[in-house]
Design a protein around this nucleic acid. Structure first.
Lengths: 221, 221
DNA sequence: AAACTTAGATACAGGGTTGTATCTAAAAAT
DNA sequence: ATTTTTAGATACAACCCTGTATCTAAGTTT
């Protein structure tokens, strides 16, 4: 950003943060398959040498970057609004999913040539600090308070919200609030026995923005 | 396959099919980011020249390959077994998802550097022959016969099964039949008002293979 | 102020991909 | 049988990425 760049020289945390940001931005831009030391170095405005001094390859660098970029807020369930808290937690996930870090994780997980060890490392380094899916935090909270049956919180059920959002991102690249509400009302709440299981038609039959039949879902077949 | 290869020379459909298969296999193996004319040519045992005569770049080739590799069976709902037909349709999707073609589509959709125009082309060339998601075909069938409320078949609901499977593939790389049953029982049927909405605990509390809490889901945060 | 550490710049050989050009011979068309 | 088409092979320069080595000067430590 300096007109007279190269005059100052970054070190320590300042430099590392720039490299981490560059790595995450780069993979979000070009994908895992085209992630190179060269690309990261250029984006971080540093020399490749500097990177090779610390990491053997781009993926190792990226994993460190993801570990260090901890933000990854946990939803904080409130008083007595299951529906609202679920929507909030899903919104949190959407925000993270569209962040460079979220896109980087996506890229890592969807790489056909992905090494299982890499995925393993990803979980150990990035996710192990958290306690479960976004919605799971909320659902458990309300289950503990007797608002819903804990036996219903199966692996499938606690994944419903995250799965629908993941697929939506793959399909359209965007997720708006209406869709989050629809997920909660039409999929999540029914699954935990707090339907609209057999709802009032007026409440349910407004799919997204009007027209049904415009699903166009990924992997529709 | 011939010991004395190069003796015979492929043409027309025979050659094209070999190229298409090679493209789809190659992207499934190395990912979209590393898909090259060179790699496809080597895998198809042909000359790069032959590819450049027909396609300007690997992605265009791949899109043609996916269009030409039509298999992509539609579920055929049976008599009176909604649950069974749903499971069958999901199994169909899983099979397709693990096929080279399915993996290729996945790779295209999850490429961070994906061009929206490419995704658009993908739908036009590949999916437009089908009428909706795998489960949607089944759900509509039973809705038309009065087994469930058509108003419940929102875009979210018809995507639940496919979304959970997609995420499961991303997370673990495998989907077994128990999981398909769990999806239908714990997510899909409740969403169409045919619960176990408040189920008998014995039926529900067997998440996958025993231990709950082993979710380790993608994008768990 | 002197010594040390290390970011940044440059260079290099080795390897892979690109897109084009050229040649040959096999397969199809006449 | 002759002509036309085109798959397959080879070659090429241009470009990018890889690791490594080397040098300098900025920033830190003493």
């Amino acid at each position: 950003m300096d007109e007279t760049a190269g005059r100052t020289r970054r070190r320590g945390k300042e430099l590392l943060d720039a490299i981490y940001a560059a790595a995450v931005d780069e993979v979000a831009a070009v994908g895992i398959g085209r992630l190179t030391m060269d690309g990261i170095a250029r984006r971080a405005a540093t020399a490749r040498t500097t990177l090779y001094r610390r990491w053997p390859d781009p993926v190792e660098l990226l994993l460190d970057a993801l570990r260090e970029l901890h933000p990854l807020e946990a939803p904080t369930p409130g008083a007595d609004d299951l529906r609202g808290d679920l929507i909030t937690s899903l919104r949190l996930m959407v925000e993270w999913g569209f962040s460079p870090a979220g896109r980087a994780v996506m890229a890592l997980l969807t790489d056909p040539a992905r090494d299982p060890a890499i995925v393993e490392a990803l979980y150990e380094r990035v996710f192990d600090s958290r306690g479960g899916t976004f919605t799971q935090t909320v659902l458990r909270h309300y289950a503990e308070r007797g608002h819903l049956d804990p036996a219903l919180l199966t692996p499938v059920v606690v994944d419903i919200g995250e799965a629908l959002i993941t697929k939506r991102i793959l399909d359209t690249g965007t997720v708006d609030d209406d869709y989050l509400e629809a997920i909660v009302d039409q999929a999540l709440l029914p699954a935990v026995g707090l339907g609209p299981a057999a709802p009032s038609p007026a409440e349910v039959n407004r799919p997204e923005k009007g027209r049904p039949g415009e699903t166009r879902g990924t992997l529709d077949g």
